[in-house]
Simulated assay, not measured.
Amino acid sequence: MLTAQRTRSTPVLADADLIAAARRDAAAAEAAGRLTPQVAAALTRAGFPRHFVPRDRGGAAGEFGPLVSATAQVAEACASAAWCAALFAAHGRLAAYLPPDGRREVWADGPDQRIAAAVVPPQGQAVAQDGGWRLDGAWRPASGVDHADWVLLASWTPGPAGRQHRIFAVPRSELAVEDTWDSCGLRGTGSNTVRAEGVRVPEHRSMPLETLLRPQPGAARCHAVPFPMVAALIFAAPLLGIARGALRTWTAERTGGPAPHPATHTVLAEASARIHAAGLLLDGAAARADRGEITSLAVAENRRDAATAATLCREAVDSLFRAAGLRAHARDSVLQRAWRDATTVAAHGTLDADAAARAYTEAVLTPDGDDPA
């Protein structure tokens, strides 16, 4: 269990204050379609936005293991809070690849800037203008944007070898937010649409997506790991916590009651085994990202393990929900919310099991000289 003591080696903490606030406001976040300001502030104090911020900007340049553990802990209390927490951390990592002047501008007021993003797929329109870019159009979804200080957006732009997937860092104050998020799960993430009208972005606040595949020499370990090696890992972390919370709820509802139905034994044993296996897979993937050799096979193994863990968690939550009876279908059912949240997270493209399987097979059968890009 993580504690409230903050060190460089454990900079992200799912402390008691954050967990209590997330649990207390989970229903309110779902009803409002966004996190409460209190939860957004608590996850910032816990250190999620600064977790991957470079040390020269005051951040922790932290490891993936603590992030996965803390995110899962928060997700047991509120999946939407955990999703935003993980993405604020992840987007800080992406912004760390901006040119030096861009990094200085983004974190001029300190490392706790909350950063939302809509970078895949490219959307809107970017036109070169006056040594920078002019952005127009709409981007969605951008999780946590109502509480963000900055937003990363992506559009197609001309490049040396054809069109280029380019990312732009824009102050949240220069964008309009449209309340469009109405999903069955992760309802409290506020994954709304942002709109730009003639927003100018200087060159130093932009970068091509390929920058994330070939980190600069001498970067901290968390910035030396290519994006595909850790993207699925970060998205799977909330799902692990959702599944653990669902298991705890389902078990508590049956503790001390009448003799369980015979099928209860199988449901409980199989669901708990799936969740335990998923935790081991994500722990291994995080350790590989933090300390393992970076090769094309390692990248593919991480994608494989994160996607498999996500599938195991979704299957576990689904079996618990189906075995919970009619009461799980009530509007205020915690288990129903977990089922909706788990189903929504598992549908994210980064966790696609078929895509991960293809990448793993290609890495095994047609190695490319261990080039992780």
Results as ranks from 00 to 15, higher is better:
172 R>S: 09
253 E>W: 14
354 D>W: 08
116 A>E: 03
174 E>Q: 14
93 R>F: 11
354 D>V: 14
301 E>I: 07
141 P>D: 03
146 D>N: 12
267 V>N: 00
75 A>H: 07
76 E>N: 08
346 A>L: 04
143 S>K: 02
140 R>K: 13
50 R>C: 06
273 A>N: 09
67 L>G: 03
242 I>A: 10
335 L>M: 10
245 G>A: 11
55 R>S: 15
306 A>S: 06
308 T>S: 00
277 A>P: 02
351 L>G: 03
367 P>R: 04
10 T>I: 10
357 A>C: 03
17 D>C: 02
100 P>F: 00
166 R>L: 07
194 V>D: 04
39 V>G: 01
158 P>T: 00
277 A>G: 12
263 A>F: 07
15 D>Y: 04
71 T>R: 01
136 D>C: 02
37 P>T: 06
309 A>H: 04
334 V>T: 14
142 A>P: 08
348 H>E: 12
317 V>I: 05
313 C>T: 05
130 D>L: 03
264 T>F: 04
80 S>L: 02
263 A>I: 05
252 A>H: 04
182 D>E: 11
300 A>R: 00
20 A>H: 03
145 V>K: 05
168 F>E: 08
221 R>A: 06
306 A>R: 01
206 S>E: 10
212 L>E: 09
287 A>F: 04
263 A>K: 02
4 A>R: 11
9 S>K: 09
155 S>Y: 07
277 A>E: 12
200 R>C: 02
140 R>Q: 14
213 L>G: 12
109 D>R: 14
155 S>G: 13
270 E>C: 10
157 T>A: 12
177 V>Q: 11
317 V>A: 00
365 L>E: 15
160 P>H: 13
338 A>D: 13
349 G>N: 05
137 G>V: 13
101 D>S: 03
254 R>W: 09
104 R>M: 14
49 P>Y: 12
322 R>C: 00
320 L>Y: 04
345 V>Y: 03
345 V>F: 08
356 A>I: 15
